[in-house]
């Protein structure tokens, strides 16, 4: 599957906008990504190993938090996973 890397994280993924991984589940895909690009880990996860609160993960157009199996959801080679830091603010 293809994992799309957002602009801020590309320096930690060898400058790539996307990374191809072979994975059976979303969790596998993330493990493969951070295995080949370990620097990404601290940007995606807290020291306790939890996904940072401002990092959104979308399997195609679905927020993985709302998928029944969440990170255990099966994926296929044609699926895409988007890493999307949140955007918010205000005066």
């Amino acid at each position: 599957m293809t994992i799309f890397i957002p602009t801020p994280l590309r320096p930690y993924a060898a400058g790539q906008a996307s990374v191809e991984v072979k994975a059976a589940t979303i969790a596998d895909a993330l493990a493969s990504l951070t295995g080949s690009h370990p620097e990404l880990r601290k940007h995606l996860y807290t020291e306790e190993g939890k996904l940072r609160a401002f990092v959104n993960l979308y399997l195609n157009d679905e927020d993985i938090r709302y998928l029944p199996a969440k990170e255990a959801t099966s994926v296929s080679a044609t699926d895409t996973l988007s890493i999307i830091p949140s955007i918010a603010g205000g005066c």
């Binding site: 957002p6 602009t7 801020p8 320096p11 401002f54 990092v55 830091p85 949140s86 955007i87 918010a88 603010g89 205000g90 005066c91």
Partner: peptide
């Protein structure tokens, strides 16, 4: 990204800073 500050200066606010996560943008 862009946004507006209605009746407020064009300066980043504590909320803007706290919620800003796109480093390098």
């Amino acid at each position: 990204f862009y946004h507006s500050h209605p009746d407020h200066p064009a300066q980043w606010s504590p909320t803007d800073f706290e919620e800003a996560h796109w480093l390098g943008c």
